[in-house]
Simulated scan of single mutants.
Amino acid sequence: MLKKAFFGVLHALGYYSRYTSVLHHPGKQTLAPGFVQHFNEAEKAFLEDSARSFNYVIDYSLGYRQKEQFLVRLPEVEVLGNTGAVVLNGKVVMESVGEVSRLAKSDAFKEVSLLLPKRKAGRYTSVLFLPWADNNNYHWFFDCLPRLYLVLENTQEPIQVIMRRDMAPYQLETLHFVLKGYSQASVVYIGKHEKWQVDEFVLPSFVANAQSGFLPREVADWLRQKVWQGYNVQSPARKRRLYISRAQAKTRRVLNETELLPVLQRYGFEMVRAEELTYQQQVQLFFEAEAVMAPHGAGLTNLLFSEQCQVLEFHPANLIKTHYFLLCKALGFKYSALVGTTGDKLECYQVPVREVEVWLESIGS
């Protein structure tokens, strides 16, 4: 009794110290089986370099396993407004947070935050993934919206999608693009300091894995079409070549970018600072791109909205990330990686300009 009262006080303060899994819950519905994506020798070498830079914490060099896709129907759960986590019988549902590595970092586990309970009748779902997707377009387009594909395509009954009103404008815009055409779905808004107790919750699995922009083709094409149509993307008179600069970012800057720019200009590349554009402009720009070059960063998320292009991504030698290689693999884009010097404490580094020029020569003028 004392133990139950103790956890009751913690839960009233928004603190949850335990978690559970629903992978074997009787309400689970498998929608698509998992599969393994294999790689050629050059791709394996790149993935091995990446794994080594992360001390093999994540290693896709022996094959990338796309997880199964599923829904789980859960009666009588709580939805936390501060994180989007789902709580079943006093324990956070791991599959609502992502994976085990996210649990220890989740605000639901380490911040005391008074959450006011509210009873809500009806059927709900949510793809909130905070703080990760808080104004972060990578997490929004790979960890959040793809999960709605599973719900909307496989739930015919009326269902309410729980969101936060303080999401970034592009997130609310693209959410409504995705919902268009699904009359069974509507949006409701939860407060940051609210905890909803709902009758039924439809929990969608995460589609993408950690450090991966790989989406099954049917999910990627669904999302691309929804965003293209929502932003009324127009076919260009000519294709463009883009260099995405991080010169104004705090981290992962290319320190010798000024040496690089004259070379890029000779090959028809234009420098773009994505943060200076509206999201509609970013989507349109990437749709028009035939080639994209950039240091690793969230700006490359917009490759998802390219029709077809070649990609050269820069990495510091000590931190080689796989997110956009796997995105390109899923979309059939030609991808190349260029590894620079070891990054400093802000992950800033230099790239070998001559090697960039060799790549430019290979794609032609």
Rank of each mutant, 00 (worst) to 15 (best):
L31P: 13
T155D: 01
L62D: 01
S96Q: 05
S365A: 15
S106K: 12
W196Y: 00
Y335C: 03
E361G: 06
L13S: 10
F109V: 12
P169D: 06
Y149S: 04
V100E: 05
A45L: 08
R217T: 09
N209K: 01
R18Y: 10
Q280L: 14
F70D: 09
Q156L: 04
P146K: 11
L88R: 12
G181S: 02
F287I: 05
F314V: 03
P236R: 10
V292G: 15
N55Q: 15
L128K: 07
L103R: 05
Y19E: 09
L360T: 10
A274D: 11
A108C: 13
F109S: 15
V272A: 10
S17W: 10
M1T: 02
R123N: 04
Q350K: 07
T155H: 05
Y56I: 04
R246T: 13
R165K: 15
K120F: 03
Y279M: 15
Q171I: 09
F46D: 04
K180M: 00
D107M: 13
R164F: 01
V87G: 08
R18M: 13
E153W: 06
R241E: 03
Q282C: 14
L152Y: 00
V36C: 07
V227I: 12
S17K: 15
L319D: 12
F54A: 09
V87T: 08
A220H: 04
Y324T: 05
V9I: 15
P169K: 06
L175P: 06
L31C: 14
L338T: 05
L10A: 03
V97Q: 04
V207Y: 06
F70P: 03
G213T: 02
V178Q: 00
E218M: 12
N209Q: 04
V36S: 01
L150A: 11
Q310S: 07
G213A: 07
K3L: 12
Y19N: 15
N40P: 02
A289C: 09
L62C: 09
I58Q: 03
D199Q: 09
S126P: 07
W222V: 02
T174K: 02
G332I: 13
R18V: 09
S183P: 00
R253Y: 08
E200T: 11
K345H: 10
A337C: 01
V92Q: 14
G213R: 00
R65I: 02
H323N: 13
L215S: 05
F46G: 01
T174V: 15
P204W: 02
E288H: 13
V227R: 02
K91Q: 14
H25C: 09
F70H: 05
Q160R: 08
K345Q: 14
T301Q: 01
Y349L: 12
A168I: 12
E270S: 13
T341F: 05
E357N: 10
F35T: 00
Y138M: 07
L103Q: 12
V202G: 00
S53C: 06
E355Y: 10
P158N: 05
L260P: 04
V79F: 03
A5K: 10
G122Y: 15
S101G: 11
A298D: 10
V57P: 05
Q229Y: 09
G8T: 03
K345D: 14
L13A: 14
M94A: 14
I190T: 00
Y138F: 12
